[in-house]
Amino acid sequence: MSNIHSEAPVAPVEAFDPPYYVAVFTTVRTEEQSGYSETNARLEDLVKDVPGFLGMDHAQTPGGLGITVGYFRDGDALTAWRDNAEHRAAQKRGQAEWYQSYTLHVAKVERSHGFTRT
Results as ranks from 00 to 15, higher is better:
T79L: 12
Y36G: 02
R29F: 02
T103F: 03
A8S: 13
F72R: 06
R29T: 15
A59M: 11
F115L: 14
G75S: 10
Y21G: 05
G35C: 02
Y21C: 06
P51E: 03
K48G: 05
H58T: 10
H105G: 00
E44M: 05
Q60P: 00
A85R: 06
T61Q: 01
P12L: 14
Q95K: 13
R117I: 06
T61V: 01
I4G: 06
M56R: 06
Y20P: 08
V50S: 00
A107E: 12
W81A: 10
T68W: 05
D45E: 14
A89L: 11
G52I: 07
G35P: 08
D76T: 13
K108P: 00
E14R: 10
R117W: 11
H113N: 10
T26I: 13
D74F: 08
S101A: 08
W81N: 12
G70K: 00
V106C: 04
D74P: 09
Q60L: 11
V22C: 08
W98S: 06
E38P: 03
Q91L: 13
S112Y: 09
M1T: 11
R88Y: 03
G94P: 05
W98Q: 04
V109D: 02
P51S: 01
M1P: 11
E14L: 11
D49E: 13
D83C: 10
R88G: 01
W81M: 08
F25Q: 10
P18Q: 11
F115G: 00
V109C: 02
D83I: 12
S37R: 12
E97P: 00
H113F: 14
V47W: 05
H87Y: 08
Y21N: 07
R42S: 03
V24C: 09
W98A: 06
V24S: 12
R42M: 13
R93L: 14
A96E: 15
S2G: 15
T61A: 12
E32P: 02
A90T: 07
